[in-house]
Design a protein around this nucleic acid. Structure first.
Lengths: 198, 198, 198, 198
DNA sequence: GATGAATGAGACTTCATTCAT
DNA sequence: CATGAATGAAGTCTCATTCAT
């Protein structure tokens, strides 16, 4: 009879995910309990299981969503024309300003968890492969256009760029008060240098 | 009768810490329980509390020990003479080969935890400050000797190097199968370039 | 519009009962959940309560249906003519081959439940009374025809035959691999002996 | 230092088992909760797990203890001399008077559970094998002494006797008010007849 | 110094049942 | 008639910590 269900269901699912995200950012993946999430979402503990099979399922879904956002940003990089080095440097600048409690720490928890939890390892590794493929593609196109040093190993360079971004994310945790401007400027310069070398 | 207590006490303390370390590397900071640690150390739960006030105290002590090892390695860098760029590049190469389950993941857990736990934040931030001071000092000495581009901001460069090392640690988790050789080579090149620029 | 409701209603009721039966045989009376039954029946949990007041009501209804089948078989025994002993022996042989997961175990669950649940006790006891009455009747008719030892206490013999059938049902659970042929042969002989005695 | 622990530990273990037994007899294997057992034993829920790994472990331990009692009684049957038929008949008589809530129903729950739970199946089947071996041995010795029909299949007869005992246990549940005297007399007669046949 | 018994809160999850639509 | 969202108590089990011995 009613047919609005799928929509409502998906809406509620997203609401719960949003609540879970807030809890995870506040208390960490292990620190946030199902009970916390239910309180935050304003539902009863039993009801959550109409939408997710387990806490792990929520964590996995949310992890993927988290990583997807990074991925989307990188997909927009693949501008057919343009200065690849400048684009990447700009992207690095954009990633940087995130202070603590902006959710960055969850990625580190995911990385740590991936060392022991095969499901999380798969999530992380699939994401990393995707990111690397996108970056390597951008670099190769740049090489074809002559915008990037043709001698560069595109895959290795992609790996390096991802590492730099990971390191960037740790900065505000290592020193929240630090003005990261000049460090970021240096990193941008390094990336440009490597791409431009001839 | 016995008067060796202080010595014995310290020995036992270190034994417990070693056991705790194995547990944490195996199961993570939250995943390892006091009970696990006691079994691994071969003592009773009650007894453990003669040596440590709480699980958090063990975590804090161990975290400091963990970071101290990195710090020690960097202290040895401060060779008054020598090619600073080569030294740092070499150090990067030495940090790299660690595969998963070598304990790297704990550092990420600590970073994540530091976003919510002030005690952990203090541990991480004190360590980072120390590391940065050492690196900046090495760089400044290099500048005085003319071995490093005098135009460089030593503090910012230290921040960048720490970030690169953090990113390096994530590599084996992001793709355990990847041959990291060429990526590391690239990173070493980047560091040399920045220090040598004139 | 529709006026077939009473018929449709009864059909649906039977469908649900059949689904419940499959679930109970698969997972036991306590092990099968309302949710399982709904999935098996292809209906929603809310809808199930239009047909049954509670899970207990389903269990009770189904228990009666279960026992009714045994009862029907015994009612067919009351052939006015015929060798009563042979008939009973044959019936024993027919009951035997059921392996595990043929639903026998539910009867044992019902027996156990009847020790604590008055509703179930009533179901079981009413059924037992009915069965005993049928068997005693068959035996008494046999006595009148001279086909059964007239000295036998018909009621007590009926009780004994029911006990033997209960024991028979436990056999495949006690040893699924056992070839029950010779044991059943012995039991048949025992029943014949007792009825024929003169 | 202290060495009384093993004794105390075993005592407490037995106390908990006794409490669990009371709960199981009162509410059934599934019906009794860990919380119930803890209340009955006067301990906290967490503490129970110092003595047992899981509820299933308690059930298994208790089930074995339950069955062991029956087994012990049968082991005492193996009198080298004596009228085997009379002994068995007497044993049947001794088993009978148990009314409801004497714990019999647990055996039926165990039988039902064994159809789905491999651990319980193993418990039940091992017990049945043991019982059958004892009974078959008694019968074979009787055959050697000429006290039992030498043509009997000892194994099959043992199976039959166990079935009869199972059926006997169902009697008080099927009709608590029934005077089982005459039915039991009949069963005893049947057993004697079969053993004595020549 | 050392044990391990004991606690009790809280973890995740399941379940029978109700109710608005 | 039919749905499935929603509840909340209860299920089993884990954990950091304390305390008598």
């Amino acid at each position: 009879m009613r047919k609005l269900d799928p929509v409502r269901h998906e809406e509620k699912r997203l609401e719960i995910l949003a609540a879970a995200r807030r809890c995870f950012e506040r208390s960490g993946l292990k620190g946030a309990s199902i009970s916390d999430i239910c309180k935050e979402a304003g539902i009863s503990p039993g009801h959550l299981y109409h939408y997710f099979d387990s806490k792990d399922a929520i964590v996995a879904t949310l992890s993927q969503a988290w990583l997807a956002r990074t991925r989307e940003r990188f997909e927009q990089l693949s501008a057919p024309e343009g200065d690849v080095a400048a684009l990447l440097a700009e992207e690095i600048g954009r990633l940087a300003p995130s202070g603590p409690n902006s959710g960055v720490e969850i990625v580190f928890e995911m990385l740590a968890e991936s060392a022991r939890n095969p499901a999380m390892a798969e999530v992380i590794q699939a994401h990393s492969r995707g990111l690397r493929a996108i970056l390597a593609d951008v670099l190769r196109k740049g090489q074809q256009r002559g915008a990037v040093d043709p001698g560069l190993d595109a895959e290795a360079t992609a790996v390096v760029i991802i590492a730099i971004i990971d390191g960037l994310k740790a900065m505000p945790l290592r020193d929240p008060a630090l003005d990261r401007g000049s460090a970021i400027g240096l990193l941008q310069q390094m990336v440009k240098d490597i791409l431009d070398r001839r």
